[in-house]
Design a protein around this nucleic acid. Sequence first.
DNA 1: ACAAGACTTTGACGCAGATCAAGATTTGGA
DNA 2: TCCAAATCTTGATCTGCGTCAAAGTCTTGT
Lengths: 248, 248
Amino acid sequence: MLNEKSLSVSQDCNECPIRHRAVCARCESDELERLEEIKYYRKFEAGQTVIWSGDRMEFVGSVVSGIATLTQTMEDGRTQMVGLLLPSDFVGRPGRPSAAYDVVATTDLVMCCFRKTPFEEMMVRTPHIAQRLLEMTLDELDAAREWMLVLGRKTAREKIASLLSIIARRDASINMRDVGDRLTFDLPLTREAMADYLGLTLETVSRQVSALRKEGVIELEGKRHVTIPDMGRLLEEAGDDADGGVFA
Amino acid sequence: MLNEKSLSVSQDCNECPIRHRAVCARCESDELERLEEIKYYRKFEAGQTVIWSGDRMEFVGSVVSGIATLTQTMEDGRTQMVGLLLPSDFVGRPGRPSAAYDVVATTDLVMCCFRKTPFEEMMVRTPHIAQRLLEMTLDELDAAREWMLVLGRKTAREKIASLLSIIARRDASINMRDVGDRLTFDLPLTREAMADYLGLTLETVSRQVSALRKEGVIELEGKRHVTIPDMGRLLEEAGDDADGGVFA
DNA sequence: ACAAGACTTTGACGCAGATCAAGATTTGGA
DNA sequence: TCCAAATCTTGATCTGCGTCAAAGTCTTGT
């Protein structure tokens, strides 16, 4: 999920991240062939639901391009985003029959999928895949717990600054720029999606973004294109210490 | 963490849960012997810090008896609990050098520990341990994401009801009682610890507990002994549907 | 190029929960 | 057993964020 480790996809193999990250470097060629056999691609349009919570899952896979969100919804309609899926992030719960959250494409999305049962069978035979998945799941757990601190204890302003700094770092990492630089990126989320992630309303998000802009912490061109003139300042606003805190 | 699966320790092997849950059922006897070699017990007193965030971890292990919390703290002192460790819960991050959170004993605590490096080496050789740990980590991730919904979108009253219902279910599960019954248990947390878990202040926790008592949703003897006369009612108050929602 | 819909901003106002404060109850150590 | 410290309750007041409302600005299809 939202941390740098999960974003470092090497350039020569980003067509199918799972293959590269979980398997390529260490496995035997016949395992690679088996993976090829059960691999297929799926495309989704922006707004389309990839998986409904509770549905039987017939695949696991990873994001090739585009962005998706994991959300939970209460009966009365209140929703909370519990994860953001970026290229190279893994989707699926090996060993579990059904999905626990809705997965929704927020942009056009390409997924690299593997049929679930054969994938699980291969996992049993190739221990380093299970180990790689354990590492990735521990990363996600850390990110989820980081986010619990944001949701439970930060103010609206700090929440916005936290989200912006995470997206900025991710973006810098993908484009191999230095975090010390003046960073520029396009927000991949609507104000409403930001609100769902942060446990706020979209009005509060809009107000706090405007406030940060007026005070020069961020610069905006249009509604989505953001520039961070001083990352240290943004991290201060987020309540993290300036050297990057836990996300460093 | 907080879900029923992680609590079902069979009676004949709860002295050292990791041995039972990760290994016993499936592994070879020489692996069991190796586990014995690197196993040791540690006791902590109530209030003692088991691990400091950022410290080098020299062991992994699991809780034998007592209760511990995982917490994160900001520089200005705001703290958020990110996990509750109950008997049989696993502690540690195989493959990671250092701890990501403070672990604090809230009652007297006994841990069953394994030296980290040999444990990791054994994990490489015995795939079903890695798979079992993956399952446990996925459980924790689900619980963490459940809690994100609680923190981000529930009211104070719903938060209290959610916490009480989770503790009640856990307790019923350990003592093998039916959740349909009239449930009774001792709160293992102070009002302040509950507040840190729920992203509230201790005053708000106290007020909401009093309100639930006055309205008959819960009964109290003293400050800590709780009776739930009607679990369905409590779950309604928590905003879950009465059949148990996602924790079922 | 324009209209319609989606997304965003801003303002006014209210309320849930935080903060500040005072006491009550429980716990534990001498 | 009794005192001190820890824990909990309750009240009064304040405030950050939610709610409701209206208007502004992008996007998309025809």
